[in-house]
Structure formats: C-alpha cells, structure tokens
Amino acid sequence: MQLIGPWLSGYTRRVGVTLHLLNIPFEHVPYHAYQQRDRVRAFSPMMRVPALQLDDGQLLIDSGAIVDYLDSFVPSAQRLMPDGGAARVHAMQLVGYATACYDKLARYCDELMLRPEAYRLPHLQAGYEEQMLIGFDVLNAARAEPWFLGSSISQADVMTVVAFQSAAVAMPRTVNSDAFPRLAALAQRAMQMPAFSLTLPDVRDLQASGLVSEDHRA
C-alpha cells in the first residue's frame, strides 16, 4: 500500500496513525496537494489527499472511508471502531466532533493563509474559531481513562489527538493545555506510541505552511 499526502494534513496523519496501530505495512508518499499537484494527480485524479493506493492498484480517498476499510484487515477485537451497540454510537459521536473541529481549523487556516488580507472575512474566521472551540469543549468534557472507550484506543482518540495537536500549533493562544487539560493529557499519552510520534509533522513543513514562524521550537 501507498499512502499519499503529507503528515501536515491531519486527515493523512489520521490514516497513517491507523496503519501503524493496526500494524499494516505501507509506503508513505508525502506529496503535497497544493505544492505538488501533478505528482498527487498521478495517484489521485481529484488531487485530494489522503489517498491510499492498494496493492492491486485500486485507489481509496476520504480518510473516513479509508480507516473503515483498514479495520477489515484485523480481527474484531483489534479494530479501532466498535462493531456495534452503544460503544460504536459513542465513538461515532466523538469522531464526529473531532472531525468537525479539524474541518473548522482547516477553514480558518485557509481563510488566513490563502485569501489575500484585503479580502479576508473576519466574521468567518471568528465563526470557525467559535465552532472549533465548542467542539473541543465537548471532547474535553468526555473522560478518557485512559482512552475514550476505556482500555483500548479507538478512532475517537486518533482523530481527537490529530485535531487538538494541529489546532495547538496553529492557534496556541486559545488551544492549549490550560484551556483543554484533558485533551492535552490525551495527546501526551498518545505521543508515547510510535504511531503518533512517527507521524508528527516536521517543523520545516509547518514553517513552509505558514502555521509557525521560523523561530518556532517544537
């Protein structure tokens, strides 16, 4: 398998973390959809990342579909989403909030970095930030002991950590351990696992994206 997309993309990182957690071998192809469009297009006609090229050449896009497919590779007890019942509903609720938080962060950053300053819409940025912080409040109130579903890590933890760490880099004044202590503790716990530490975006990628300054220290 080949995973196309940079770790700077939270959705690509979500898939990478999942592949590592499920011990599924893959090759990471860190092409950037904005900066290397032709290279991405060779794998993903719509130039979307993440894209997962399977061993038989078939292509999957959309991180939600990809991680659902990857669960089929392992026994039920090892999957990152419960098969059914109340646990699955709870996990889906949390994944929904975490995904929405990341989506609002992405929209906020696009407004800030891609739209010329004279044409930016402050009310949109404020709205995106407000919605994101509400979502993080919900996730912070959900106890993770040690994980959201108990003793086993799930997609709820994966997407929450990805979203929280991305937001903490882009908006450290409002998204930090003081504002969301339980999410910070969850992220710290996750970073003890190679699946998360090996997929953390390189500081040079963050600098190139404009998310952090040249003197940023991780």
Rank of each mutant, 00 (worst) to 15 (best):
S154N: 02
F136P: 02
A86H: 09
Q188D: 12
Q125H: 14
R120P: 04
A126M: 02
Y102V: 11
A33R: 04
H216P: 07
G64F: 13
P122F: 01
M47Y: 10
R107Y: 11
D103A: 04
P75Q: 07
C109H: 12
A168M: 11
F180W: 01
G57K: 06
H123I: 15
G85F: 02
V158I: 12
V29S: 15
V89W: 02
L3Q: 10
G16L: 06
Q155V: 08
M132D: 09
E145N: 05
L186Y: 15
D71C: 02
V161A: 08
D137N: 15
Q93C: 09
S177A: 01
A100N: 12
G210N: 02
D56V: 11
A170H: 05
Y119P: 11
L211V: 08
Y97I: 12
A144G: 06
R107T: 13
L54A: 03
E27S: 09
D71G: 07
D110A: 12
F180R: 02
P172M: 05
V29G: 14
L21I: 09
S197I: 14
R120G: 10
L19T: 11
S213V: 02
V162L: 01
V74S: 09
V212S: 01
A187Q: 13
Y97S: 08
Q155K: 01
A144F: 00
R143E: 08
S197P: 13
G84Y: 03
G135C: 12
G96K: 04
F73S: 15
V29R: 15
A195I: 06
A195N: 05
Q155G: 08
I4M: 15
L8H: 08
Y31D: 05
D62C: 13
H216E: 01
A51H: 07
R39A: 06
Q2G: 07
A185W: 09
Q93S: 09
V89N: 06
K104T: 01
A100H: 11
L149F: 09
N23T: 06
L124V: 00
Q125K: 15
E130G: 15
Y31N: 00
I24R: 07
R107C: 13
A51Q: 01
L211M: 06
R37N: 04
P82E: 13
P122K: 01
P146S: 03
S76Y: 03
L94W: 13
M47T: 14
F148Q: 14
H90M: 06
L198H: 06
R204D: 05
D157Q: 04
V161K: 00
Y69S: 11
L19H: 02
A126N: 09
R41C: 12
A77C: 06
S63W: 02
Y128N: 03
A118L: 10
Y102Q: 13
